[in-house]
């Protein structure tokens, strides 16, 4: 603890017979060896200053920190969520977005197309993929599928009730389960997403309207299980969809009946 080098240990301190002595730190070093070590020992100051390069590095770091804080702080606003805005805040940006949204609303066809794409991304893409090609052997493709571009009633029915068991698409048989979307999506969303998949990836088929979806939903309201291929083929191809005029308003088309759990009862055998 003193500033000088410590004196050599007193002999009594090294007595290993003392009870309670911590043997582990008991040191019996030969005096010669100790002296050699001591000679080589350069007394350190404990006050080695910070190297100059470290001071420079610290200065640079602090400078960088100031610049970064100033540049990416969104103006220190409580509502400045975009660090790159630098002064344009969510309030203003939000207003601009709302205006753009209003402009887009003027064209219902565009809004309908956007709705379809959004629904596809949110609900369908995880299985059928963004490419619409599905996954070989697991999920059937939508691109070029005869079911997608074919009979309107059948494709609406598939989305409403889901599928189970072996199912042949473009010559390949898939054995899997598709969930029923009836309880999840309303007529407008189903129509939008069907219109989207019928006209994406090179598919070309007439659009599907929310009224048509509502009619098919009503027609099969009593069916509680998913379709099998045979059941589906029993629906006559291109049979007409009887739209009940103006009964369910298209603005509020979804029947609010609490849909029974449409748990696919059959497990696909892997």
């Amino acid at each position: 603890m003193s500033d000088e080098l410590r004196p050599p240990p007193e002999p009594h301190e090294l007595d290993p017979t003392l009870p309670g002595v911590d043997y582990s730190e008991q040191v019996n070093v030969s005096g010669i060896h100790d002296a050699v070590l001591r000679e080589k020992f350069d007394p350190r100051e404990g006050m080695e200053p910070m190297p100059i390069w470290l001071w420079v590095a610290v200065a640079l770091l602090i400078g960088w920190g100031g610049w970064y804080l100033g540049t990416f702080s969104g103006g220190y606003r409580a509502d400045g969520f975009d660090e790159r805005s630098g002064g344009a805040f969510l309030g203003e940006a939000g207003a601009a977005q709302a205006a753009a949204g209003a402009a887009a609303k003027e064209d219902p066809a565009v809004a309908f197309a956007k709705l379809g794409k959004r629904q596809f991304t949110a609900n369908c893409q995880s299985c059928h993929q963004a490419t619409g090609l599905g996954q070989a052997g697991v999920y059937p493709p939508l691109a070029g599928s005869e079911w997608v571009t074919g009979c309107k009633k059948r494709v609406i029915a598939i989305v409403l009730k889901g599928l189970q068991g072996p199912f042949k698409v473009k010559g390949t048989t898939y054995n899997n389960v598709m969930q029923a979307w009836e309880p999840v999506l309303d007529d407008k969303k189903i129509a939008a997403v069907l219109t989207f998949v019928r006209n994406e990836w090179g598919n070309q088929a007439p659009p599907i309207s929310p009224e048509e979806v509502a009619a098919v939903r009503a027609e099969f309201a009593s069916r509680k299980v998913a379709w099998t291929e045979a059941d589906l083929l029993a629906i006559p191809e291109n049979s007409p969809i009887n739209i009940v005029p103006a009964a369910p308003s298209p603005a509020n088309p979804a029947p609010a009946t609490p849909a029974p759990a449409v748990a696919p009862s059959a497990q696909p055998s892997p």
Partner: peptide
């Protein structure tokens, strides 16, 4: 969804940990 400056201050402090 937090104000940008809160996160930016954190980032700067994280980099300052280099010292």
């Amino acid at each position: 969804p937090l104000p940008a400056w809160v996160i930016t201050a954190s980032i700067v402090a994280s980099v300052m940990m280099v010292i």
